[in-house]
Computed example of a mutant assay.
Amino acid sequence: MRYAQGGGLTAERRRMREQIRFEAGERFARGERNALVAKDLRVSERSVERWRRAWREGGTTALASAGPPKLPKLTDDRFAELEKELARGPAVHGWEDQRWPLARIRALIFWKFNLDVSPAAVWRLLHRHGWSWQSPARRALERDEHAVELWKKDVWPQAE
């Protein structure tokens, strides 16, 4: 099942699901059947079977949430360090131009933190921290801004 935020339940939804499992545990203790528990809690019988097995082996504590399935590889403190390095610019790190493609950021993460991540993971990391994709404006080297402004002011209104 895929979730709206692209990877799992929110903390609030995890707590809600945990409460449902705890309620199922109370019903297991009273000896209720799986089908009745599943119907009342509006979950599948397979889930109830899985929960009952966990409850039998570890009690109510086995029904507790295990937390988010995957924590970010870079903590917020480490990401702040990465942002400082990105602000220094690519030239400081040995690249000739002033672009930060994902492959370069990935290499920087590897050099700085000895952490190998995929380009997709780099994108998700940047996106999670409010970064967005930027495209440089393509302008002719011979562009004369003064002439362009004059054309916009004088010629363009007559063309309409």
Rank of each mutant, 00 (worst) to 15 (best):
E49D: 10
R56P: 00
S47W: 12
V48E: 00
D40Y: 04
A38H: 06
L41W: 09
D40V: 08
W51D: 01
G58D: 07
W51Y: 05
R46W: 05
R42I: 04
R46D: 07
E45M: 10
A64P: 02
A38T: 02
R52F: 09
W55D: 06
W55V: 07
R50L: 06
L36G: 12
G59F: 06
T60S: 15
R56S: 12
R42M: 10
S65Y: 02
T60A: 15
L63R: 01
R53D: 15
D40N: 11
R56M: 06
W51I: 01
R42A: 12
K39W: 09
S47D: 12
G59D: 05
A66V: 09
V48D: 00
G58T: 13
R50W: 01
R53N: 14
R50A: 09
E57P: 06
A38R: 03
L41F: 06
G59I: 03
W55K: 05
E49P: 00
E45Q: 15
L63N: 02
S44C: 10
W51N: 01
R53G: 13
L63F: 02
V37W: 01
R53H: 12
G59T: 13
A62V: 01
A62G: 00
A66N: 06
E57R: 14
E49M: 13
A64W: 04
E57G: 11
A38D: 09
W51Q: 00
R42D: 07
S65P: 00
R42P: 02
L36Q: 05
V43T: 11
E45C: 14
R52A: 08
R46P: 01
R53C: 12
A66G: 06
R46Q: 11
E49R: 13
T60H: 12
L36T: 15
D40W: 08
G58I: 13
A62R: 04
E49Y: 13
E57N: 15
S65A: 05
L63T: 03
V37Q: 06
K39F: 14
V37P: 00
L63D: 04
D40T: 05
R52G: 02
G59S: 11
A54E: 06
L36F: 08
V43G: 02
V37T: 11
E57Y: 05
W55G: 03
R56F: 02
T61N: 09
K39A: 13
S47N: 11
A64N: 10
R56A: 09
G58C: 08
E49N: 12
E57T: 13
A62E: 03
V43Q: 04
A64T: 05
A54L: 09
T61V: 15
R42V: 07
T60D: 13
S47V: 05
A66I: 08
R52Y: 08
